[in-house]
Each structure stands twice: as C-alpha cells, then as structure tokens.
Amino acid sequence: MGVGRIDRAFAAVSDSADAEEVSGPVRERGTDGHMHPGGDRDPRRRGRGGGALMPFLVAGHPDLAATEATIEAIAAAGAQAIELGIPFSDPIADGPVIAEAMHAALRHGATPEAILAMVRRLRAGSGQARDLPIIAMVSISIVDRIGRDRFVGDLASAGIDGLIVPDLDLDEAPALRGSCDRAGISFALLIAPTTPQSRAAQIAGLCSGFVYVLARTGITGERGALPAGLPARIAALRAATPLPLAVGFGISTPEQVRDVLAVAEGAIVGSALVRRIEEAHGRGDDVAVEAARFVELLVTGASAPAEAPP
C-alpha cells in the first residue's frame, strides 16, 4: 500500500546489475523503513538497465471504463507505475493533447468520486493492476476545494499510493506533506529547469517517495531530442536529495525513455500515450489494446540490450 508500493516500483532499479550507480541514492533510503529491496520479481520489470516506466493517463479519457481497462492492460504490458491525471478544467501546465483529454473526461462525468470508485475496483480485482502503484496528479484547485485532509484521506482509502500537485504554493507544501504522511501516501512536487539549486533542495526536502523532475520548460507534449543538459541537472539534484527522481514532460519515444532511465529512476510518458488513446478512440478501436501496445514498445525499446547506455 501507499508509499511502500511506490518504493517497490523504484526499487526494481536496485535489482538491476547495471544500474548500480543510478540506484545508489535509492539504496540509501533502505534505512527509512520504506524500502523493499527485493523489488519487483516480474521479469519484464527487471534487467532493463533499471528504472520505472510511469505512463500518464487522464482519468476518464475517453471514459472511466476505458481508463480502467487501460490501466489493467498497461500493467500487464510492463508499466511499473501509473500517473493518473485527475481532470481539471484549467490545466495550465498541459499542452493541447492532455488539456483536451481532460475537457473530454469532464464532459463524460469523470469526477474525483467516480475516479476513486474505479481505483477501488482495480484494487479489488484480480488483474496485475491490483498491485500497480497509482499516483494521482491533481491541481490544487481540486484539492483545496474538497479539503486537503479529506481529499488525501479519500485517495488513500481508495488505494491511491501517492499525490503529485503541480501547482501548489510551496509555502503550503509542509501542511499537505503532513496530510499525505498521516494518510500513508507519497507526496511529490515538481522541480523545473528554471529552479535554482537551493530551491530545488528545498522542494526535494518536502517530497516523499520520489521527486518529479521536469525535463524541460514549457507545457506537456511530444518533443524531439531530450535537452542536452538533462544528465547534468539530474546529477546536480543527486546532491540535493536521496529520493528517486522521475522525469517527465516531452518524453515520448522508446529511445527517450531509455536515455532518461539511464540517469533517473523513473520516466513519465504522457501526451504520446494520451494521443494514441484519443486516436484509437476516434477510430473506434480498443483503447486499452492500443495503449498496451505502445507501452510494450516503450518497455522493450527502452530495454534493448544493444542500445543500453554504458
């Protein structure tokens, strides 16, 4: 449950022989009681050069039944965790693909209550998603309106393992972190390329479970090459935190996932997946099948031994 499930996702890294250096900081966390050094025993989630693929889905896009089936399918396809976006009417960090998916989800009734009911069904089921770490990405507008303690409690009791708030005022982070600690779920904030090192250390210090590192400035969406400075930024962040680092924004291909996982514990792929779901939905195809096919491509491409980074 909760933080433990997230730790296990990232702990898969430490099973991997060639990820020794990368996983160093993760291992150090073993003393805090959250670590589960055994990691994931599913062979598909091991030996990929380390690191967790965390696909991002908009909950309720195109509808909640499809999201439920998609989570099951991509868990089976090798995703080690899911970032589940709770749709918001005004997502200013998101590009057109995710923003439009959120608007569509809202039109189809994807309320927090309905989304958490879906998560409960997954947790009660017998599929691979039953134990898949699920991390909710939620605007502070929603958290604040429902009430922080109540909302975090609802997440935890539904079986959500962690919370990402992309637009929190940092002054309020300690209180929300406290709510998450009490509920037993992890709490992640964003660090941007524009964030000075001292502030990055402050932000990382408020996180638990992992830290969300933005690969680039700008909104979510598919892009070309990864920024050249990313490995150096990741290296600098190692000095600021022992937590696993998950990298997102503009990561859309197997090669990019591989390159990210060469330096970080997590790679988040959002718009590229959401676009495929939207396109499959438009064609009348099974979105879960399409999503699983893409996730499998990301997993196998990222773990192709010949292309594994040194």
């Binding site: 200013i92 507008s141 005022d169 524009t194 933005l214 700008g218």
Partner: peptide
Amino acid sequence: GGRYVPETLVPA
C-alpha cells in the same frame, strides 16, 4: 493571494 503555479514559472 499566493503563487499556485507550476514550478517553471516561479523563478520568473
């Protein structure tokens, strides 16, 4: 008041 924005904007 406050600053409820993505981190990218905070330094600006």
